[in-house]
């Protein structure tokens, strides 16, 4: 079998269903489809999101790094570092995530578990998508153009090679996980 297979082929679509199914199960079992878990991240009372995401980044990133090194996968597919756009967009995103209590992926998953406010949140996402599309020309000219560094990676801007970044990140993750499991156990009282 030649990899990668075309994603919009029949096999690609079937695999997509399998991947989506797994992702949805993992989000629900990880409790990140739970309003409290997301909101309590921002209230610094529940670090489930940090544990899941940091683990996913380390496991996923090391695997991708090794596969890239072995020539199994092609170029990295990263997003442009339009610094002002990313900073402003992330800040707006954070407000939205604290208000809704979900992010886009967990919102879709929470909607499927019946949460009616997540359904309304999804309608809001559609509205936000429409507003963005109609503001795009202006945003592109006035915001995305500022600090546009292109699709750069940490190693490109720092000169520190990937392998060193992974050593640093694994060390940070180990430290963070240790602190979360020992010294900094949030109280069970989450409300």
């Amino acid at each position: 079998m030649n990899l990668p297979i075309p994603k919009d082929s029949t096999a690609g679509l079937i695999l997509s269903a399998v991947f989506g199914l797994i992702f949805g199960v993992l989000l629900n079992k990880g409790r990140v489809t739970d309003y409290n878990v997301i909101v309590n991240l921002f209230r610094l009372k529940d670090f489930t999101v940090v544990k899941i995401m940091f683990t996913a980044i380390i496991v996923g990133g090391l695997g991708v790094f090794v596969m890239k090194g072995a020539g199994l996968i092609g170029e990295y597919q990263i997003k442009a570092a339009d610094l002002l756009g990313v900073a402003l967009g992330s800040a707006i995103f954070g407000v939205g995530m604290a208000l809704l209590g979900y992010c886009p992926g967990t919102g879709v998953a929470a909607m499927a578990t019946g949460r009616l406010h997540a359904v309304v949140g999804f309608f809001g996402m559609i509205a936000g998508g429409i507003v963005y599309a109609f503001s795009y020309t202006w945003i592109k000219a006035n915001i995305l153009s500022i600090g546009a560094m292109g699709k750069v990676r940490l190693s490109d801007v720092t000169g520190v090679p990937d392998i060193a970044w992974w050593v640093i990140l694994v060390a940070i993750a180990a430290g963070v996980f240790y602190l979360l499991e020992t010294k900094f156990k949030p109280s069970q009282e989450k409300i």
């Binding site: 939205g96 208000l99 809704l100 949140g121 936000g128």
Partner: peptide, 10 residues
């Protein structure tokens, strides 16, 4: 929730 969703995607 609606406003939050809109801000999220925007």
């Amino acid at each position: 929730a609606f406003a939050g969703g809109a801000l999220l995607l925007f």
